[in-house]
């Protein structure tokens, strides 16, 4: 990638309801052709952010640019380029799948003839060929979701925004759905913004992830960058099991040993004989050498790595308070 074209750019986006700030000075940018995951627990402000991008909700302050258009001033242009698939997408239950998609096609400026052709073609791609003339009420959840994708694709979008698209779809269906999105994005250069609370789903398909908690974007980047940003106070933690012969306060002793070494921020006792070193850089070899030369018996030394699971635990299952 040489010059990255920013398709979605949010600057200081804020949305507050009476007392409650749903989205708080959010900055975000997504380049062309990228699959960006917006990860966050329920109520983090993902949907609100998306609604503002589409001009379906008025931001309190901040600026939005989608494909160079401001959805507040030019909602029509934005909606022409953006396909939006909300969670629990709704269709007219008394109409057939074809009729529903036909309406979308016509609203996007196709004449009736073109719309029919295009709809049939898109529905075939979505794997709904046999169910074209069935009424929506007979559709299963997975079929509705595929119909939703067809509904998005019929306008030939440059950007697809998916808001919790796989909610309530079985694992098989989720896999298929995500695969087709990746394929689409790679083949046609479509930019995808996928909002989800499911870590593994995001991990599977997204190039980059933005972690949003309490209306704030806490970190963004690929998974490595994410853990670095999130744990920047101690980017590296080393756990060492050391036996100090005949000593009743090994932590003080170690602090004295490591006093002059730059990079070690803190030492804590974790369990019996197990100590946690907070370091600025990777320095396990230094620690090992120093421990051994000062007469300690080094039993084991492991570098603690932050995976997404750790992130997930810390921010999601720990509740919103941890994120603040």
């Amino acid at each position: 990638m040489t010059v990255e074209e920013k398709i979605i750019e949010l600057k200081n986006l804020t949305k507050s309801y009476d007392q409650f700030t749903a989205v708080d000075h959010l900055n975000l940018s997504v380049s062309k052709g990228e699959i960006f995951g917006l990860l966050g627990p329920n109520g983090a402000g993902k949907s609100t952010t998306i609604l503002m991008m589409l001009g379906l909700s008025e931001p309190t302050s901040g600026s939005i640019s989608i494909c160079g258009y401001d959805p507040r001033r030019n909602p029509i242009e934005v909606k022409r380029k953006v396909g939006y698939l909300p969670e629990n997408v709704g269709f007219y239950n008394d109409r057939t799948g074809l009729e529903n998609i036909l309406l979308t096609a016509q609203l996007n400026g196709y004449s009736y003839g073109e719309a029919v052709e295009k709809s049939i073609e898109t529905l075939q791609k979505a794997g709904l060929t046999d169910d074209i003339d069935q009424k929506i009420k007979t559709y299963s959840r997975g079929m509705r979701q595929r119909l939703g994708l067809a509904d998005v694709l019929i306008k030939d979008p440059e950007v697809i925004i998916l808001d919790e698209p796989t909610l309530g779809v079985d694992p098989n269906g989720v896999q298929e759905f995500l695969d087709s999105i990746v394929e689409l994005s790679r083949k046609n250069g479509i930019t995808v913004l996928l909002s989800s609370h499911d870590l593994h789903e995001v991990q599977k398909v997204c190039d980059r992830v933005g972690l949003i908690v309490g209306g704030k974007l806490i970190a963004q980047g690929n998974l490595n960058e994410l853990s670095q940003q999130l744990f920047h106070t101690a980017a590296y933690q080393i756990i060492a099991e050391i036996i100090w012969p005949g000593d009743n306060d090994p932590v003080e002793r170690m602090k004295a040993i490591f006093k002059d070494i730059r990079g070690v921020i803190n030492i804590e006792k974790e369990k019996n004989n197990t100590y946690l070193f907070d370091c600025e850089t990777e320095m396990s070899s230094d620690i090992a050498r120093l421990v051994v030369t000062s007469g300690g018996n080094l039993v084991s030394l492991t570098q603690k790595k932050y995976g997404l699971d750790e992130i997930y635990y810390r921010y999601f299952e720990g509740g919103l308070n941890h994120g603040k």
Binding site: L54, I76, K79, Y84, P86, G90, L107, N108, D151
Partner: peptide
């Protein structure tokens, strides 16, 4: 309630 309004409104119409 049917969820169709948000789908309609995300089409390029006023």
């Amino acid at each position: 309630n049917g969820g169709t309004l948000s789908r309609l409104l995300s089409q390029p119409i006023h």
